[in-house]
Design a protein around this nucleic acid. Structure first.
Lengths: 128, 128
DNA sequence: TTGGTTATACGAATATTTTCGTACATTCGT
DNA sequence: ACGAATGTACGAAAATATTCGTATAACCAA
C-alpha cells in the first residue's frame, strides 16, 4: 500500500476545499456561512468536518488566536486531476475524449472558452 | 424532495455498471471475474452489491434460470452526464472548460480523438 | 464584572457503504 | 444417486462519512 498518497477528499470535504481554494484563508464561520447558502447544516457540523480535514492533512490552521484560520494544503490542480482521472477511469472506460465531449455537450461554454480549448488542442497536437 | 430522480450510484456500483454497459448482459460470476482482475473481492460481496443495485432499480435481472442474468437499466449517457455535472460543480467551480483542459492535459488522446473534439467544438460554435 | 455571544473540543448517534459468513437450493459429473 | 461445485438469499459486522449535542473557554459590550 502506498502511504504518501493524498487522502481522497469526501464530498463534504470537497465542498469546503472549494471555498478555501477560492478564498485563501477562512474561519469556520466564513466557510459555514457560504455552505449554508446552498444547504442546511449546523455550525458544529462544519467545524467538525474542518477539524477532521485538519487531522487528515487536507488543511492547515493558524490557532494563535481564539478564532482559527484555515487554509487548504492540498493542491487544487492535483486534486482536480485526481478526481478527473478517477472519473475517466470509472465512468468513461478510460477515454478522456469521451468525457470531454460529454462535458462540452451539456454545459454552456463561452466563445472565448471554446477558443481557448481549441488552442490548447493545437498545442497538444504539435507535441505529439 | 424530488422522488423520480435517478439514484446516484456509489463507487462500487459504478464499477459494476461499467461492466454491464460494456458487456450488455452478465452473470454475477462474470462481473465478479472482471472486477477481481483489478481488486480483491469476495464473490458474495459482488453478489450482494448487484442485489442491492437491483433493489435500487439500477439493474434488472432475469431469474428464470438458476443463474441470474443482470442488465443495466440506468442509461450510461445520463449517468455520465450526472457525474460530470457533479464534478464540474463540485471541483471546477462550475466551469466545464476548466475540467476539459484538465482532462486533456493529463490524459493521452490520439490524434483522431483530438480531431473529433475539434469538430465538435466547431459545431458548438456554429450553434451559438 | 458579568452576562450574552462566539469559539473550539470531542464523544457519540446516524446514516451509508462495503464486506462477508452461513444457510440452503440447484446442477453436474461420475 | 450422490457429493462437489456453483448459485442465491440474507443478516449482520466493519468501515466510512455525516450530523449534532454538550461542555467549556475566550471575548466583548454595558
Amino acid at each position: 500500500m502506498v502511504t504518501d498518497q493524498q487522502h481522497k477528499p469526501t464530498e463534504s470535504e470537497l465542498e469546503i476545499l472549494q471555498i478555501l481554494w477560492d478564498k485563501g484563508n477562512c474561519t469556520v464561520r466564513e466557510v459555514h456561512e457560504i455552505l449554508t447558502l446552498e444547504k442546511e447544516a449546523g455550525y458544529t457540523t462544519t467545524l467538525k468536518l474542518m477539524q477532521i480535514m485538519h487531522e487528515k492533512g487536507l488543511v492547515k490552521r493558524d490557532t494563535s488566536a481564539k478564532t482559527h484560520i484555515y487554509t487548504a494544503i492540498v493542491n487544487q490542480q492535483k486534486t482536480q486531476e485526481q478526481l478527473v482521472t478517477k472519473l475517466i477511469d470509472n465512468a468513461f472506460n478510460g477515454s478522456a475524449a469521451r468525457l470531454v465531449m460529454q462535458a462540452l455537450g451539456n454545459h454552456q461554454s463561452s466563445k472565448d472558452e471554446i477558443e481557448a480549448i481549441k488552442e490548447y488542442l493545437d498545442k497538444l497536437e504539435k507535441q505529439q
